[in-house]
C-alpha cells in the first residue's frame, strides 16, 4: 500500500463521508432521519467488540446539540497514512493546511504492498475511533457497541447523513451495552 496512488485511493474510498464535513448550515430534520436497527447491540459479542464498533449516546442531550458536537469532531477525522503525516512543512495556522501524500519507495515490492493493504484499513478505523473518543468523551458522551455492519453502513454514508443518524442515536435513550474500557 505504499504506492501513493493506491494509498490515496484507499483512503478516499474508506472514508468518503469525512472529507466535506464542517460547514453545514443546519442539521436535517430529525423526523426524516432513519436510524438503523440497533437491537443486536445487546449481544455479548457486539458489546465485547464495542471498542471497535460503537456510537455515542448521552442522556439529556438534544438532537441539535449532538449534531453540533459530532459535526465539530468530524473536522478532525482526516484519514492519514505513513505517506501523509510528514512534518517540516508550512502551516498557515489561520487556514487549513494542505494535504500532501509523499512518495515513499517500497523496497519490499508486491509483498510489502499486500501486507500494507491488509492492515491499513484496520489502522485507519482505529485512528478514526481514537479521534472520536478524544473529541466526544470530554463532552460527556458514552460509547455503546453496535454490530459491525451497522457501523459500516452508517459511517460510509455521505457526511451530513452519517452525522444526522449518529446525532439521532446519541440523543435517543441508551441502547445495548456500554463499551468496556478498552
Amino acid at each position: 500500500m505504499r504506492n501513493p496512488l493506491v494509498q490515496a485511493a484507499a483512503l478516499a474510498l474508506a472514508w468518503p463521508s469525512i472529507c466535506f464535513a464542517q460547514n453545514v448550515a443546519s442539521p436535517p430534520d430529525p423526523q426524516t432521519v432513519v436510524v438503523p436497527d440497533l437491537s443486536r447491540s445487546s449481544d455479548p459479542e457486539v458489546v465485547a467488540n464495542g471498542w471497535k464498533y460503537f456510537f455515542f449516546q448521552k442522556n439529556g442531550v438534544s438532537y441539535a446539540e449532538a449534531y453540533d458536537d459530532l459535526n465539530d469532531c468530524y473536522r478532525f477525522l482526516q484519514p492519514n497514512s505513513w505517506a501523509s503525516v510528514k512534518l517540516n512543512r508550512f502551516v498557515p495556522w489561520n487556514d487549513k493546511p494542505g494535504r500532501k501524500v509523499d512518495y515513499i519507495p517500497n523496497p519490499y515490492g508486491l509483498v510489502g504492498d499486500l501486507l500494507g493493504a491488509m492492515v491499513e484499513g484496520t489502522m485507519a478505523r482505529r485512528d478514526l475511533q481514537a479521534k472520536m473518543r478524544r473529541c466526544m468523551e470530554p463532552r460527556g458522551y458514552t460509547r455503546y457497541g453496535v454490530a459491525e455492519e451497522v457501523w459500516e453502513t452508517v459511517t460510509k454514508r455521505p457526511t451530513e447523513q452519517s452525522i444526522a443518524i449518529q446525532a439521532k442515536i446519541a440523543s435517543s435513550p441508551s441502547f445495548g451495552g456500554k463499551v468496556p474500557v478498552k
Partner: peptide
C-alpha cells in the same frame, strides 16, 4: 458519492513547502 463544494481558493488543497514552520 459526496459532491464536493464548488472549487474555491479557500477550500483548495495546497501544500506550500518553501517555508517550514512546523
Amino acid at each position: 458519492k459526496t459532491i464536493p463544494p464548488a472549487p474555491s481558493v479557500d477550500d483548495f488543497n495546497f501544500v506550500y513547502d518553501k517555508i517550514r514552520n512546523v
